[in-house]
Write a protein that binds this DNA or RNA. Structure first.
Lengths: 223, 223
DNA sequence: TCCTCCTCATACCTCCGATGTATGGGATGG
DNA sequence: CCATCCCATACATCGGAGGTATGAGGAGGA
């Protein structure tokens, strides 16, 4: 195993063992490199890799710190990974969304705070009668994110959010708009909100399933 | 943004745009560094970060290549991330598993090949009457992996596999064994196989739910 | 002719030392 | 007491040097 990989494991070990808790500051590059028995360059590669997945936070002129290690931080590296996938695997991602999003909607119907439900409604209302594609995409992301957050499960929220890259969303909404299906999709969003607001998990789950399956079906036809 | 981060984006762009397809070989360090306008050291940090998440595969003495970019490769970096989490967020991961695993079991009941179902049964049979903790853990991992693979959805399989780190599994089985609950857990495994073998998705889903929820409940009590 | 082994060019691995640059805090002056 | 300036600190980036593993091609033998 390469020296750098060993260094990654050692730093990981220091964190997992509790020696370095969330927010803790690492020794400066030179000291840590000496302690781990390698050069600064090699250490930097290890630190860079860990900062890529949001485990470390390096601040020039200040130091290197362990992040809060909250699930949302660690999992949103996922969206970076998703970007690499092309048409052939997109349907697989969608199949997973069809599992997760209904579950999230159902949980939201049980747990979401009333204030947050109001916010959810406001998100839909914010969209005018003839929004641009960009507005639709941004609104769509915000809508699904708000539901995911409402499940009170950061892991689930991050997965739902990370599993569909912005690029793919843009393509989908463009296609839906061209087909004149955007209005129906927005109606489904409203139905999901209504189900959550009336605290009907089963109904929320079903509407979410219908919603995702509809988009998935369109996507399957297009590809 | 740091130079290295720019380099990461540029390499990512070369891959996403199709300039570098799966299996393609990158120019050698020196050439690529010059082309991207940075030093070899900085480029190496970028390459290291991308190889961490299995996008690039560096082979000393040979060269650096783009991986197959298959979902399982890219997502099994997930288990690395999961390892960082401690007790307080483990339950969140489990809640997601309770969503994904039943769905996987149901899909497996529909799609899994007969031969693979036989293999699944063999996995359970391989375990003797008084297995060690290590054997139980290895068997457990293999069992759930086999089901996930049977869904014919690599993304789902990777998520299911990555979402529960080996460390956590070991703790769980140790605890279950101490409570004498290991036998019941193994019976649940058998029930899931039976449901899949008899092609009953609903039954498979229910047994999987019962299985995960049972472990989750035990975990909730312990923590 | 075919196979095996050896040699070598190649490409990544690791390190060093130096300079550039952003940050945070303490000293300074109002 | 506060705003500003200065500087020690720590990361960012660079270029070069020597080390090591790999793969391919040539030499030699069966």
């Amino acid at each position: 195993m390469a020296l750098t990989d060993e260094a990654i494991d050692k730093i990981k070990g220091m964190i997992v063992s509790g020696e370095l808790g969330p927010g803790a500051r690492l020794p400066k590059e030179a000291d840590l490199a000496e302690r781990l028995g390698l050069s600064r360059n090699s250490l930097r590669e290890a630190v860079r890799a860990l900062s890529m997945i949001r485990v470390l936070d390096v601040r020039q002129g200040d130091g290197t710190y362990v992040t809060s290690l909250e699930p949302n931080l660690l999992l949103d590296a996922l969206s970076f990974v998703v970007d690499f996938h092309r048409d052939d695997t997109v349907l697989q991602f969608f199949e997973v969304r069809r599992v997760l999003e209904p579950a999230a909607a159902a949980l939201a119907a049980e747990r979401m705070l009333d204030d947050d439900i109001d916010k959810l409604q406001l998100i839909l209302d914010d969209l005018g009668d003839d929004p641009t594609i960009e507005a639709l995409v941004a609104n769509d992301i915000e809508f699904h994110r708000q539901i995911a957050v409402g499940t009170d499960n950061a892991v689930l929220a991050s997965l739902v959010e990370g599993l569909s890259g912005p690029t793919m969303r843009a393509r989908i909404w463009r296609g839906l708009t061209q087909e004149g299906a955007a209005a129906r999709t927005r109606e489904q969003h409203q139905a999901i909100v209504d189900a959550i607001a009336s605290r009907q998990p089963d109904l929320a789950r079903s509407w979410a399933t219908v919603h995702i399956a509809g988009v998935e079906e369109w996507l399957r036809r297009v590809l």
